[in-house]
Design a binder for these strands. Structure first.
Length: 662
RNA sequence: GGGGGUGUAGCUCAGUAGGAUAGAGCAUCGGAUUUCUAAUCCGAGGGUCGGGGGUUCGAGUCCCUCCACCCCUGCCA
């Protein structure tokens, strides 16, 4: 397979340089020659070696070229240009290995023992989810799928900040603005005409407006926050009621786009089980935190934040972060430190667990509880942890890592990956469409920031609704099926495909300026384009089967011989075009590895698009069912299988399902 | 002030740990076997890769510097 061949070439290069020149070198970077006629893999390292060896690069490459063979999968090695080493692969061998890989349903890599923990979504459970949350969830979910695709054992956690300020604000809204009792809220929850998460969305905005108008009312918040954190009284009960209901809504929203979880870690349990107290003791013992006796932070426990160069302070004094407020409550970072110690099994304590939500396939989402439960699966205890958290929180994530280091957990700190992504804004036009009044200068901005406090944003479910509606129209217009259930199922897959691809095609470091027109597009570089490509390929097989009842895709593996593969892949007329498609299809694993190491799912999304493009091009150029040469027809079917199966497996990693018809 | 991010075609973005001729989608214009359903394909136009230095055989990519925009630097998260 392609990835393995690459690894072999790298390793062999190091040996070859050692043999030829007695020189120790690192594994070389592999590139791609400008066209497959020049080879499939290239190494440009001879240029660098030229200095050390005082020889022209071309001469170095020539001395190395002969030392690679025999190498499984490589047919020949030659020198091109000023000193490139170009590797020509054994096309028939690679293609048949790829066919076997795609045809076997078992994962390519057996699951390892090490557990990787991915935390994503982590929405404040006080109102409906918006597009920014969708970006987080889809990025996180795709990271999970990527890791699993490459054989890693992954646990998905969703952190629920159910004792934080944002929940407190909604409690304030119910208690003080709406004068509602616990029973009133309960009734509201049971009212089928009320979308509770939408209701809270509006209420939260109203609370903020009230804070603006009446600063004194901020005291409500402080009071509510304290009682919620202490876990007693009506505010605490109401917070529990609200957050649990909203979390359930969030799970349902995310399920619509194929995102699922294993465990909900609730902040209230971190407090209730004294995880924080325990972590606090550890930090104090190590001198990582100290109590301020004077100055602006008097009465607070703070942690010193070292600047990267080790220069602390300067004239303005050192940078510190408050961990415990002067009123004794813990900031979010403090709780996050405790949470992360538990993630790495470095706290010496564990939660209890209880089932919370069951998916239709039986998979259970668990939540943390204070009571121990013997029947739960083991959670936490990871060696590597990813946190999918927006980039604005980098400062706080650095503090968590710094705390780990302060406790001597350097290895864990190094294995803690802040998967930082940028937020989703609205284009000015979109913001105005949503009813926001913009100043002239705001219209010139690249994007308008969404604001939960102002109630400005595109709700996730509204967007998904619109996508499904549009997709349903398209499905109906095409008269693919008369069955309304099928129509709906197709529309949902197409809507999800469009949305997930839209959120994944951008690099995580750039701000997405959201626009309905772009997000609702089904043509060009979109999810539906990818899905359509696979559908086209499957249509070929379906039609072919109508004439050949005994046909199955798997049978191609034997009906096309290695001899034929060799012949068609080196055909003077079309060999290059055939080979380019197969070669691209073979790179899914290589690209997935890249996406993981760069922590950049867009790399795989872009690859899927390139593969779909290559396939559509091929589809248009070669008419398979009309092919009169039977051997050639079998070969073409073989090639369609490689491309379609590679693409559909890649789409699975992206969380994009393919409908039967489009 | 300090830390981080971004700047590539009219617009939105890629550019694979420096490599062989700067790419894609959208938009615009022109075309395609009345089919394995066109949610497709082909072609055209369009670029001082923010500016200036430097390193290198080679720089969109690395270093320095300047400019513009954004985020963080809360007893919010």
């Amino acid at each position: 397979m392609f990835l393995e061949t690459q690894q072999k070439i790298r390793a062999r290069f190091v040996e070859a340089v050692q043999e030829a020149f007695g020189l120790e070198v690192n594994e070389p970077v592999l590139g791609f020659p400008p066209s497959v006629e020049l080879g499939e893999i290239s190494v440009a390292a001879s240029f660098e070696l030229a200095k050390r060896l005082r020889q022209p690069p071309r001469k170095i490459a020539e001395q190395l070229a002969s030392r690679f063979l025999p190498l499984e999968g490589v047919e020949r090695v030659n020198v091109a240009g000023g000193g490139y080493l170009n590797f020509h692969l054994d096309r028939a061998l690679l293609a048949s290995a790829l066919f076997r890989l795609r045809a076997e349903k078992a994962p390519a890599v057996p699951p390892g023992n090490e557990k990787i923990l991915v935390e994503h979504t982590s929405i404040n459970p006080n109102k409906a989810a918006h597009i920014g949350h969708l970006r987080n969830a889809v990025l996180g979910d795709t990271l999970v799928r990527l890791l699993r695709f490459r054989g890693h054992r992954v646990e998905i956690q969703n952190y629920i900040d159910n004792t934080g300020v944002q929940v407190a604000d909604v409690v304030v809204g119910f208690l003080h603005l709406e004068k509602k009792t616990l029973a009133d809220v309960q009734k509201l929850l049971q009212d089928p005409s009320v979308r509770f998460d939408y209701y809270c969305w509006d209420l939260y905005a109203r609370v903020f407006q009230h804070y603006e108008e009446d600063k004194a009312s901020l005291a409500w918040r402080a009071e509510a926050l304290k009682t919620i954190e202490e876990g007693h009284g009506v505010p605490a009960q109401m917070a529990e009621l609200i957050s649990t209901a909203i979390v359930r809504k969030h799970l349902e929203t995310m399920l619509r786009v194929g995102v699922r979880y294993d465990l909900l870690v609730e902040e209230s349990e971190i407090l209730r089980l004294d995880f924080w107290k325990y972590a606090f003791e550890l930090l104090k013992k190590r001198g990582a935190v100290r109590l301020e006796h004077s100055g602006k932070n008097q009465g607070c426990w703070v942690m010193r934040v070292d600047s990267p160069e080790g220069e602390t302070g300067g004239e303005n004094g050192e940078d510190v972060k408050i961990i415990v407020r002067s009123n004794g409550t813990v900031t979010y970072v403090g709780k996050d430190i405790a949470y992360h110690l538990w993630k790495f099994a470095a706290l010496g304590k564990d939660f209890g667990y209880a089932p919370f939500y069951r998916y239709t396939d039986g998979h259970e989402v668990w939540r943390t509880t204070a009571a121990r439960s013997p029947k739960s699966p083991p959670f936490g205890g990871a060696t590597v942890a990813y946190g999918v958290i927006d980039t604005r929180q980098s400062y706080l994530q650095n503090i968590v890592a710094a705390a780990l280091r302060a406790l001597g957990l350097d290895q864990q700190a190094a294995n803690l990956h802040h998967f930082a992504y940028e937020v989703v804004g609205l284009t000015p036009a979109c913001a105005e469409e949503m009813g926001v009044e913009l100043a002239a200068e705001d219209r010139e901005r690249p994007y308008i920031e969404v604001s939960g406090r102002k109630g400005l944003g595109v709700k996730a479910d509204d967007l998904i609704d619109r996508l499904e509606e549009k997709a349903l129209q398209e499905v109906r217009a095409r008269e693919l099926t008369q069955d309304p259930a099928d129509q709906l199922a197709y529309a949902r897959m197409i809507a999800t495909g469009a949305l997930r691809y839209f959120l994944l095609k951008f690099s995580r470091r750039i701000i997405i300026a959201f626009d309905f027109k772009e997000a609702l597009a089904f043509e060009g570089e979109t999810g539906p384009y990818l899905q359509y490509s696979v559908v086209r390929a499957r249509n070929i097989f379906r039609k072919y089967r109508e004439q050949h009842a005994d046909f199955s895709e798997e049978r191609l593996q034997t009906s096309v011989t290695p001899e034929q593969l060799r012949r068609f892949f080196t055909d003077a007329q079309d060999g290059t075009a055939f080979w380019e498609l197969a070669l691209l299809a073979a790179q899914a694993e290589t690209v997935a590895e890249q996406a993981i190491s760069a922590e950049e799912p867009s790399v795989l999304a872009k690859y899927a698009f390139r593969l779909a493009q290559a396939f559509n091009n091929f589809y248009h150029r070669y008419h398979i069912l009309n092919e009169s040469d039977a051997e050639r027809q079998q070969f073409l079917l073989y090639l369609v299988y490689l491309a379609a199966e590679s693409l559909s497996q890649t789409l699975e990693v992206l969380g994009i399902e393919v409908p039967e018809r489009m």
